[in-house]
Amino acid sequence: MSPDGAPAAALIHARGIEKSVAGRPILSHVDIDVASGEIVTLIGPNGAGKSTLLRILLRLVAPDRGELWHRPALRVGYMPQRLALDELLPLTVSRFLALGNGGRRADLSAALAEVGAAGVAAAPVQAISGGELQRVLLARALLCDPQLLVLDEPVQGVDLLGQQELFGLIVAIRNRRRCGVLMVSHDLHLVMAATDRVVCLNHHVCCTGHPEAVSRHPAYLALFGPQLGEGFALYTHHHDHVHDPAGHIVELPRGSEPPSAPDHPHG
């Protein structure tokens, strides 16, 4: 059933996608594939057409030209870029999730537990933090038992440590469910560890491949500049204190190892 030249595990197969908006070309001749079990990250500067490509691949928008194939009866879990819920709409997290699956309670709590957000089930959607909201959106995407997860800037509005945790969570979900993941990010280095293949997009596909290879590719460096590609290093250091659950500083005795996260990256 898979199209010519695509592997049997193919979920999405797109060739020669073209799209113009108001006479301005947004996408020209874009090829992209996503297969079961792989994480593909779409990176590119603002206005590069990442979201437009995602919406075409989701069949929310029709391309001007090009062919798009979905595996028959493909189940797609979609996590939109942002959710700005009006204060006038009283909605708890579990009600928000129930909108996606008709409210089978066991599935709702299982999905919330899987993303580590079981604690916010009864909270109003407007009252939870940015990181919790992203996890809740991810939980909603998991409700349809997806073969493909499509995540649009999944770590938006999340602090750096939370971003690392979220990417770790996405990898864990892929490992557990063997689903394909297509996500959008504006920063390659944040997603490096959490991705198998990178597609660098600036209206056309500039380069594609393993994240390490893309980060050294001339087309990538031309787009993002060498300072990001070369000068970026993980800042390794020790903390002399930790925080207790209430946020208070707990001094550590000199020379001792902190109980958790002794070395961690900062941006």
């Binding site: 929310l60 797609v76 979609y78 819920l85 928000f96 909108l99 996606g100 349809c144």
Partner: peptide
């Protein structure tokens, strides 16, 4: 009720679903 509420909360998400 439910689909109308879903598209009120997030239209594209409802369409994908």
């Amino acid at each position: 009720w439910r689909p109308l509420l879903a598209m009120t909360v997030h239209e594209e998400l409802a369409r994908v679903e």
